[in-house]
Design a protein around this nucleic acid. Sequence first.
DNA 1: AAAACATATTGACATATTTCGATGCGTATG
DNA 2: CATACGCATCGAAATATGTCAATATGTTTT
Lengths: 117, 117
Amino acid sequence: MFFVDEFEPCCVLTTPLDETEAEALAHQLKALADPVRLRIVSMVATSGTGDVCACDFPTILDRSQPTISHHLRQLVTAGILQREQRGKWAWFSLVPGALGGVRAALGEGAERSPADA
Amino acid sequence: MFFVDEFEPCCVLTTPLDETEAEALAHQLKALADPVRLRIVSMVATSGTGDVCACDFPTILDRSQPTISHHLRQLVTAGILQREQRGKWAWFSLVPGALGGVRAALGEGAERSPADA
DNA sequence: AAAACATATTGACATATTTCGATGCGTATG
DNA sequence: CATACGCATCGAAATATGTCAATATGTTTT
């Protein structure tokens, strides 16, 4: 009722975001708002094991290894992906609940306003 | 005008996005991934009537009138907001279902992958 | 039709982003 | 321990983005 949860103080549909809240959410959305990064997240989310080796991305996504590394870092920094070193390979998996948190911030579970039919 | 695609063919959690799908979703997310635009959407979504006059934004958001106009155009182009002229004022409201579509593309309703607890 | 007002567009600038080649750093293997 | 391999970082280039002042466009009122 009074506290939705620890660090999702409100959502777009319940109360007008203040500048700080808007910046935090914008940071997460920005991390997702790129075709290469979306495909990385999607590959990780749909992999049978839940994780993908960084070594797979350059070929499949047709980007250089430094470019992939750059995108992976953004996703990790934003709290979307987590990194695990296995031997000389880096494997990436979804941070549990991260995507759900973004969806919640966009109003999942909140009741619709008059115009959001 | 713009398109509100009826075809949300899949989501990030069900099948790896191809380049075209990723670009379409990235475009919508990019429209939301800015603090000023998030606050605009939030103000519209939480306004009692469901719409807000463009004239209110420059003062509240502390941005020039052209800057606000620029952000409003991006939100309309992305299919998040719709515009209605009333006399000499422009009023903006949520496109019904638009935010829900973004949430759905991010996996709302889809079953979680092994790592998405 | 002229004046007044709300919004859009243009032009310009500073910053951010995406990308890659070259290089550096760790880890494993011969 | 030297080499190869995977990934990160650096430096640089092209493009995109956020912003505002000036100006244009459109609507209402006088």
